[in-house]
Design a protein around this nucleic acid. Structure first.
Lengths: 252, 252
DNA sequence: CCTCGTTTTTGATCTGGATCAAGGGTTTCT
DNA sequence: AGAAACCCTTGATCCAGATCAAAAACGAGG
């Protein structure tokens, strides 16, 4: 029995490490001793409960964070009091990158559900990336990927209709889950309709109506926050503006 | 006379180097010998004419580019044929960062007017940043700054009215010019109304009407593409949603 | 099991900005 | 200079999605 316990703890530890490090080193095939060094600077943090904030807008920037389990959102406040949701973050994803430039966090992160994250002190990570070229390259790629995701969102917010936005959102979620080996068609949306609307630049009511519409059209099955995508092809067509009800889009 | 020519070429070279390198090393106070090494990998390229494209969406990513003079836009095509302007780029600014992740450019860059740029082969830059910690740090900062600018735009496109968007756009331009030591209140908009609208998620007609309105209200003086900002305070108030005609903004 | 607060849904109405239309300006090419 | 191709502006109309309103569904705490 104690033997079993030891095995169990060890396997958890390995699982945990893999999950934490995967976004940093998996795509590169980092050498084992370098993985060890990277692992050395990563700090376990206490588990987060819904609403807990690993960092806050305006706070001094010290570390990046990796989502281990659960999910978080990031958001920034506007001058006039409202807030803009900037992103939702799933296991394996890195957050806090926007604080590097000014040394101050540019947004607040908040757990959407019970979650676990790891902290990576950025100063130590910088020292390490200077020594390990492939890790440096991976950091550049991660920062660039973030830029790419942001510009995708610019396109969504700048040009797409409400219908296209929600379809694109669901597909983005689906793909990110798939990349982590989770189901791409059947998942849990930990954020509220309000937060989805805020993220997509839509009113709550519009989001709710669209879910109903998508369900009526047989594209998805919605039950509270559990979503099942029934027709990925049709969703893609909608997200790309080739959906059924598109009278040819004028280039604004 | 030949003496004068030599001086002139040398001063141009210095001016050019300063301008090219400023975004990479000015904020850090890089050591002179490191500036020399960085300068060594920077390639002069032929001058661009309006419409020339230093790189194109889908093309293999090899280099970053620094704007020396003039201005460029970057844009990406949507599946349905239209395009989204992702940014306008002024002297001293770095473009091409979104290609690092996938090794392929994610957008196209196009000169808005006669412009000069420099090319920085990214492979060589990576080697250099691994050797020069402060340069590596500066690269992280530049990538992070880009993320910050993108998230600012997400906020603009997600939450702001047409009026607020144009005011924010003019102020952003003003600040970026100011940072390069140019006039913050009196400048030339090298892009068309159409391109401004595309960037801000607005129709051309709306942009045109807003310029007229701002001029009528005494906020700016517009003469074709020459703009003079007359009341920065009022523009900021508008950009922040505290403008005159704001019935308190509901948090969507 | 009930109560109170929050979230979601549905319906009715309103509006900011898109779209359509058309005239005058400016640049480019021949 | 003449013409073809944009670019910018202004006016009139329209509509996707916001806003307002209110009922239903949930969920946490007692």
């Amino acid at each position: 029995m104690s033997h079993q316990t030891v095995i169990s703890i060890e396997s958890i530890r390995i699982a945990c490490r893999n999950c934490t490090l995967s976004s940093l080193c998996l795509p590169m095939g980092l050498a084992p001793e370098d993985v060890e060094r990277l692992d050395g600077i990563i700090r376990r943090t206490r588990p987060l409960r819904r609403g807990d904030r690993p960092f806050q807008e305006g706070e001094r920037f010290r570390s990046l964070f990796v989502v281990k389990t659960g999910s978080l959102k990031t958001f920034a406040a506007t001058r006039d009091g409202s807030e803009q949701v900037l992103g939702f973050h799933l296991p394996g994803e890195l957050i806090g990158l926007d604080g590097i430039d000014k040394g101050v966090h540019a947004c607040t992160a908040s757990a959407l559900e019970t979650s676990a994250i790891c902290e990576i002190p950025f100063g130590q990570l910088e020292e390490l990336t200077a020594l390990i070229p492939s890790l440096q390259h991976q950091m550049y790629r991660l920062l660039s990927k973030e830029i790419g995701h942001d510009t995708d969102m610019l396109l969504v917010l700048g040009k797409k209709t409400a219908e296209e936005r929600l379809a694109a959102f669901l597909l983005d979620f689906s793909q990110r889950l798939h990349r982590r080996g989770l189901s791409a068609t059947d998942f849990y949306l930990s954020m509220s309709r309000h937060e989805i609307g805020n993220y997509l630049g839509l009113a709550v009511e519009t989001v709710s109506r669209l879910f109903t519409r998508f369900q009526d059209d047989g594209l998805v099955h919605v039950e509270r926050k559990h979503i099942r995508l029934l027709d990925l092809g049709a969703l893609e067509a909608i997200a790309n503006g080739q959906g059924p009800c598109r009278h040819q889009q004028q280039q604004r």
